[in-house]
Write a protein that binds this DNA or RNA. Structure first.
Lengths: 197, 197
DNA sequence: GCAATTAAGAGACCCTAGTCTCTTAAAATG
DNA sequence: CATTTTAAGAGACTAGGGTCTCTTAATTGC
């Protein structure tokens, strides 16, 4: 590690810290790149050598969404059937999105995922969220409580994307009861996971 | 209708026609408002008196998405159970989105729905799509093939939003087999609609 | 140690969606 | 018919994300 690289890393951190502070304070749309540059006492040139867009720096922080899922799984101790686990996970999820992250943040993420140059993030199968759901679907298939005509991978993909539909609708509607709608949707999805008679 | 209003209407039409032609030719992102203005021989002032954004004029055209659903329902003649109808409708839907509208158009719509100033369009319950699905869910509830612990309105909302999740994922992933994923998802959703034992 | 190379960064500049102001001609008023 | 009001539209201007070029100082090579 050379002196120059160290200094660059410090610059990167200055920009990141300033940006996150501003995002928290004013929200993504209200923060200008020039604000970030001013606050971090750097320059546009520095900003764009370290981050490829304003959205990228925003995402940096919100990759910690995944910590929620990891922590959630660890915290579960009592006995639960796989279906109960999946249901409870998704009920906890809406609280986290609503009360911790906030609609505006989620909306920003969901919007930028659709930008032509961006590669997905929410639907990335490498995310802990996907792994955790898949793990419990597998368990359910093993104990016979979940259908086996589709692989756990495929079933997981279907559940998570249906849930994304719910979150998407919440983001685009002013009056939307996220919890209630999540409950309704889960009721259909979980029944849809049971083995066919 | 006064002379001035007539002339305004003509201007509006000139802008709309020019815009749609350019969108078809080059895609939403590649068309500049100045291109539209130039092609229609009008001005920015005229553009923004008739449309509130570039997206709004785009949506104007793609409200005809709804014609697809109306036509589809009318064209169905043979006997089908409500669940079969819903399944077939959604299989036809993906072909329409993929081959008629195209991913780029759908992506543009899904993205703009999330813009803070915009009110939804895709999740609007007044759309024919919603009405048609609801009608068949009601039928299924009447003949006992669909669960009755939730209203047809609620069930419809869940199905349509889960489907939106699928379309959303398609829009944000390069390699995504929309038809196959729709089949998988429908398999879960339709089972989830059946009455609980 | 000294030239040549290169990476970090400063900031002027570009691009384009959207706004603002001003003009003009049609409609309303009397 | 003259005057006032107003709505459509022209186009200059603003805003803000992102790009480009140029500088400088650290690193490398001889």
């Amino acid at each position: 590690m050379h002196y120059r690289q160290q200094k660059a890393l410090l610059t990167r951190k200055k920009i990141l810290d300033a940006a996150l502070e501003l995002f928290t304070e004013k929200g993504f749309d209200e923060v200008k790149v020039s604000d970030i540059v001013k606050k971090s006492k750097t320059s546009k040139g520095a900003f764009y050598t370290h981050f490829s867009s304003k959205y990228e720096i925003f995402l940096e922080k919100f990759k910690e969404i995944d910590d929620f899922y990891i922590t959630y799984e660890q915290d579960q101790t009592g006995p639960q059937t796989p279906l109960q686990f999946i249901e409870n996970l998704h009920k906890a999820q809406v609280h986290y999105l609503k009360d911790e992250l906030g609609k505006d943040t989620v909306r920003t993420i969901y919007m930028n995922v659709l930008r032509a140059d961006q590669d997905s993030f929410v639907a990335d199968k490498k995310r802990p969220y996907f792994h955790i759901v898949k793990k419990f679907i597998k368990k359910g298939q093993e104990d016979g409580s979940i259908r086996e005509d589709m692989s756990s991978e495929v079933l997981t993909a279907q559940i998570t994307k249906a849930i994304r539909g719910n979150i998407y609708d919440w983001c685009s509607n002013d009056k939307y009861d996220l919890e209630k709608e999540q409950d309704y949707l889960l009721s259909i999805l979980l029944l849809g996971l049971t083995p066919k008679q």
